[in-house]
Amino acid sequence: METGTTGETREPEWVGLPGGLLALRRMLLVLWSVVAAVATGVVMGLSVGPVWALLGVVWLLVLAWGWVLIGRNWRSWRYAERADDLLISRGVLWREQTVVPYGRMQLVEVTSGPMERRFGLASVQLHTAAAATDAKIPGLAPAEAERLRDRLTELGQARSAGL
């Protein structure tokens, strides 16, 4: 909670993730589910019998269930830049909120693997002195990830210098 100019408490301005991460994760789910369904159907059909090939349908049920779960998980990710710290919130069943004070940041890096680059995505990883800090914001547009990195680095330098 932040305090406004008149002393009232207000919620931070949360920013959700863009849709590219959702598309990437769902595409991978479809790819692996179809491969598993076909492999299961072929192996079971050839080794046990044609009726057993229908076990491949189980993977299509996993696909439907995963589709919903991935959407819920994606919607749960958000972050907010406040005056003294960065908030990262995620999780559906087990909500987790990470607060990273700007003055504690040691390194802010932008990463983008091959699949992320293909979908125009990048992740911001925050490193602090605490080894247990898991401060990562996945699935951002590269320009937003670089903007966030530059802003957090600037704020981190100002806060650590006591400015």
Rank of each mutant, 00 (worst) to 15 (best):
Q106F: 04
L107H: 11
L107C: 07
V108T: 08
V108L: 06
T111A: 11
S112T: 07
S112H: 09
S112Q: 11
S112M: 09
G113W: 08
P114R: 12
M115T: 12
M115S: 07
M115V: 14
E116G: 08
R117I: 12
R118F: 10
F119Q: 06
G120Y: 00
L121K: 00
A122Y: 13
S123I: 04
S123H: 09
S123C: 06
V124F: 12
Q125I: 15
Q125Y: 11
Q125F: 14
Q125T: 14
H127T: 15
A129Q: 07
A129K: 05
A130G: 14
A130H: 01
A131G: 03
A131Y: 06
A132S: 11
T133K: 03
T133P: 03
D134A: 15
D134S: 14
D134R: 15
A135Q: 01
A135I: 00
I137V: 02
I137W: 01
I137P: 05
P138C: 04
P138H: 03
G139R: 00
G139T: 03
L140E: 01
A141L: 14
A141C: 08
A141W: 06
P142F: 01
E144K: 11
E146S: 15
R147Y: 09
R151I: 15
R151Q: 00
R151E: 10
L152T: 02
L152C: 10
T153N: 07
T153P: 10
E154A: 15
E154Y: 13
E154G: 15
L155N: 06
G156A: 08
